[in-house]
Write a protein that binds this DNA or RNA. Structure first.
Length: 366
DNA sequence: AGTGTATGTTCCC
DNA sequence: TGGGAACCCTACAC
């Protein structure tokens, strides 16, 4: 089966002066990922290295990276959508920028992005409820209002690239047939939620399930081909302005749901001992499989992404990138430490703890 | 320790 | 349909 319950943080890295807002793996290099920040910075990092090789500098406040997608045809380039109002494609140095969309209005920006390389089409959702459809070379095909409020997420089904999902603050997730785009399109399915929705991801293994994360306490699973509501998983992950929105995501090989927990005193069953874990659920049953937590630091973990083979997982925990690997103990005891840490360059928790043990002050965490 | 910074959502007129 | 205050209550720098 899987080894999700054997995961352990082997590295932490803090490359930015702001929160992490997005993470995605390189399509060809299995140890490389792109990470974006609240300030618009993007790094390309091989997690076997202590530091990133390239960083694209953002504008600081108001630059937040909302979505990124590597160009599969030329993986030295990446598409980005940000609060600056731009959708563009750049190389690792931030050069050779191709601008696809630009709002020129500080109150109007792009929130989501996906590219279908088989269909040669790209999608970008904005904060007003519109979705734009473009050819991969940037020719605009249409601009349609699919939601009443901000579109938080838009993506192509990996198996059927004509099928797209969109999620919105307007409490809905909608499924659309992109072949049938009219000025006033009708959704194939409207999936109503109780709260605003952060994301609606098709399952990575087969593409026949849809996983939604709302802004309060529901994870939902819908199943194709009719996209019936299969089940709801109660899970605390409420929205907060200064927290990167929590988005549950899929394991790449099995239908396992991965979600960061933000304990909520108002959530049924809450206890003061509840931790800011990463929770894993079986999508078939909705049952919790396991919970993991970094043993040396305690922050809310908004984003989690396994690599393509389901071996290494990276997490976005505030300003920190965590790298998790399966660990099979060979007898020695695990060291524990509550000391918060700061990563200037990637280091192992053990390395950090060793340094701290040499006479650092101790700080109590209530 | 105490304050300032950060572009998220709701509710009200 | 838009502007502004209230509210959600993290986590950093100085």
């Amino acid at each position: 089966m899987n080894h999700v319950n054997k995961l352990r943080v082997v590295k932490g890295y803090r490359p930015f002066d702001r929160r992490i807002t997005f993470m995605t793996w390189h399509p060809k290099k299995p140890t490389v990922l792109a990470v974006g920040s609240k300030g618009g910075d993007i790094i390309f990092w091989d997690y076997n290295e202590p530091k990133h090789e390239h960083m694209i500098n953002g504008q600081g406040p108001g630059g937040s990276i909302q979505a990124m997608k590597f160009d599969v045809v030329d993986p030295s380039k990446i598409y980005t959508a940000s609060i600056t109002g731009l959708v563009c494609k750049q190389d690792f140095y931030g050069r050779n920028t191709q601008v696809f969309l630009e709002t020129d209005n500080k109150d109007h920006w792009y929130t989501s992005l996906d590219v279908s390389f088989t269909g040669k089409v790209m999608l970008a959702g904005d904060n007003k409820g519109y979705v734009r459809i473009l050819s991969v070379d940037g020719e605009q095909i249409s601009q349609i209002r699919l939601h009443k409020q901000k579109v938080t997420h838009a993506e192509f089904n990996p198996r059927e690239p004509w099928l797209i999902s969109t999620a919105s603050i307007d409490h809905t997730v909608k499924l659309w047939d992109i072949r049938n785009v009219k000025p006033k399109p009708e959704a194939l399915h409207i999936l109503n939620h109780n709260k605003p929705v952060n994301s609606a991801y098709f399952s990575l293994a087969h593409g026949n399930r849809l996983l939604t994360t709302d802004q309060h306490s529901e994870l939902r699973i819908y199943e194709g081909p009719l996209w019936n509501h299969a089940r709801t998983i109660a899970h605390p992950h409420r929205q907060f302005q200064h927290l990167t929105p929590i988005k549950a995501y899929w394991h790449p090989l099995e239908d396992i749901v991965i979600a960061g927990r933000y304990p909520d005193p108002n959530f049924p069953g809450y206890t003061t001992a509840e931790l800011r874990t990463i929770d894993f659920f079986d999508a078939d049953t909705g049952k919790i499989l396991t919970q993991i937590i970094p043993h040396f630091k305690n922050g809310i973990i908004s984003l989690n992404r396994f690599d393509a083979i389901g071996n290494v997982m990276v997490s976005g925990m505030g300003w920190d990138i965590l790298v998790w690997k399966p660990f099979y103990p060979d007898g020695q005891d695990e060291k524990e430490d509550d000391e918060p840490t700061k990563f200037k360059e990637a280091e192992t928790p053990e390395h950090f703890i060793k340094k701290k043990r040499g006479g650092g002050k101790t700080k109590k965490i209530d």
